[in-house]
Design a protein around this nucleic acid. Structure first.
Length: 186
DNA sequence: CCCTGATTCGC
DNA sequence: GCGAATCAGG
């Protein structure tokens, strides 16, 4: 796959919107994040005032072993499976299949109010929002908005491996029953 | 471990 | 020009 005008354009846009190199690589398809970063540099787009990388090194090192970077491109099926993993006992289980499928089994403990866009959710730029295809095993799968709406998207921020939500949404999702009453507004 | 961007350098 | 390998840092 080469850097066609369209792909470069998309890359530029997404980079400007603040998506990470790996996210951009996922959107473009058939490229690794390294390729994206390399291109970003060649285009002179580097230097987002983000706190992220901040690599400051000057070295040269031997390269003993080679590594195979398997393309981590989830198929639609995999992505969907990741969304409804039924990982933990008490948690929301968004379904995207049916329009009215946001039927949750309120297992007494948790049930974040997810129907209307929760005002408590931080705003996430459109390009940064996780589409069903952008989610992977460790991106936050907190649903935002009405699943049947075009505005629906997932949080998409990083979550610890094995957990479905980022720290922020995890704190909301797993509030102890006793605590919930006293902080519905959070 | 996962992730991030930055850099080098063989191709 | 391209991007894997590697780095430093979170």
């Amino acid at each position: 796959m080469s850097w066609t005008a369209e792909r470069v354009e998309l890359l530029t846009k997404l980079w400007a919107d603040g998506l990470s190199a790996s996210q951009i690589a996922g959107e473009l398809g058939n490229v690794t994040r390294n390729a994206v970063i390399g291109k970003v540099h060649r285009l002179g787009l580097s230097g987002r005032a983000k706190s992220g990388g901040g690599a400051t090194k000057t070295r040269k090192a031997p390269a003993p072993a080679a590594r195979v970077v398997t393309s981590t491109k989830p198929t639609v099926a995999e992505a969907i499976a990741a969304v409804a993993p039924t990982p933990s006992p008490r948690q929301v289980q968004p379904t995207i299949a049916g329009a009215n499928a946001l039927k949750v089994e309120p297992i007494e403990a948790i049930q974040p109010e997810i129907s209307p866009v929760p005002s408590s959710d931080l705003f996430i730029p459109v390009s940064e929002r996780a589409s069903i295809l952008t989610l992977n095993e460790r991106t936050c799968k907190w649903p935002i908005g009405d699943p049947s709406s075009d505005d629906f998207y997932f949080c998409g921020r990083q979550s610890d491996a094995g957990t479905p939500y980022c720290a922020h949404h995890r704190s909301i999702a797993y509030q102890p029953v006793s605590d919930r009453r006293n902080r519905r507004a959070s």
